[in-house]
Nucleic acid binder design. Structure first.
Lengths: 208, 208
DNA sequence: CCTACCGATCGGTAGG
DNA sequence: CCTACCGATCGGTAGG
């Protein structure tokens, strides 16, 4: 490749603004090519700055991935936590969380995909830094299932842990085929997931 | 890294044997690091040959990935096709496919993971070469769901296409947390999936 | 299969 | 933020 030429016209932007722009652009490149194949050269090209200039904002390439993953995990967990805490029976709250999590994935498809594909590209300690809060996705789903079993709405014969893993994993798998930002489609998917999973989990033949 | 030294002792092996050994070793490296980060240097190191010698077997790095993906797709599709064709009602066959596909994933975790992560690393035409047969996973699941709806065992209100996508995607998502080769665990997972999905899909309250 | 290479690209740095 | 680099590594090749 020919050495990247300096833009004849470039505009220096405030640090904060550039930083969030950097994260958006980088996330898009990582989404398209994968973290490893996403070069700082391409990211800086799209930003319209020199590759070396990225180091005004970061200390390593990994800093970018970390920031993206940290952010999506934080807002995603806040989303389901809020939905789970809004009252109702356990099965009602589970249904709300199922829908809300799917809508979240559709709305944040790029970042969610990166989260589900590139966590392992981080060193173990930085993974823990992201995941290691007092609460977590698996914990939240486990609690909802457990409460449903206690209140008798979810079949007691199901293994709580395994069932929670299956439900969360199934919801997360939608990132593979969902279209970004298509809220209508996301609602349809959420409705189907609600029907299938809730019917599959409920004890007896309680109508909902 | 210090230039790799020639092994003082190496054994030349028959071409066929080396080739399958190469695919196994390469799959393991790709599984651990991802295709892009899996270097030919590391693969040849583990094989105990020189990097350049790989080109006695391949014409490009991509050939390795293609062979791995081609193979796992072929045997996996043969597996579910066989299970779906063994007779019984549609819901019975679906249940059999659910269990068999999960056991397959557990038994071929490395290759399945590569398939679900690295297909997009191939050029579009080589992807089609793998996926483009007359039959396919999505098609098979769609047919099973459709037949179940026709026979009245699966709720007609569910969108056939979307439901098939959800079921297949949910089963595939297990590669993320399954342990390779643990058949007991795989049976438990399959049983739970069977319970949850079948109950979630069946019309009325037919007991199974 | 090995030896001995090559051009391209990578993440990163010094100094401004 | 840019210029001007660097060492390391990558996939791949010629010739045997």
């Amino acid at each position: 490749m020919i050495p990247t030429e300096r833009r004849t016209e470039y505009k220096r932007k405030p640090r904060e603004e550039r930083w969030s722009e950097l994260l958006n652009v980088a996330a898009q490149v990582i989404y398209e090519k994968g973290y490893r194949a996403a070069s700082l050269q391409e990211i800086s090209d799209r930003l319209g700055i020199m590759k070396g200039s990225l180091y005004y904002y970061i200390r390593s390439k990994e800093d970018i991935l970390f920031a993206v993953l940290q952010n999506i995990h934080e807002i995603g967990l806040a989303n389901v936590t809020s939905l789970a805490g809004q009252g109702g029976t356990a099965i009602e709250r589970l249904r709300r969380v199922i829908r809300g999590h799917i809508l979240f994935i559709a709305e944040h498809l790029v970042d969610t995909t990166i989260f589900l594909h590139e966590m392992k590209a981080l060193p173990a300690d930085r993974q823990k830094e992201i995941l290691g809060g007092t609460t977590s996705y698996p914990k939240l789903f486990r609690q909802l299932i457990a409460e449903g079993q206690e209140e008798g709405s979810i079949r007691g014969a199901l293994d709580t842990e395994l069932t929670a893993t299956i439900v969360l994993g199934s919801l997360n798998s939608t990132y593979r085929w969902m279209r970004a930002g298509d809220v209508e489609a996301a609602e349809r998917i959420a409705a189907h997931f609600g029907e299938i999973l809730i019917s599959g989990l409920i004890a007896e033949d309680e109508a909902l």
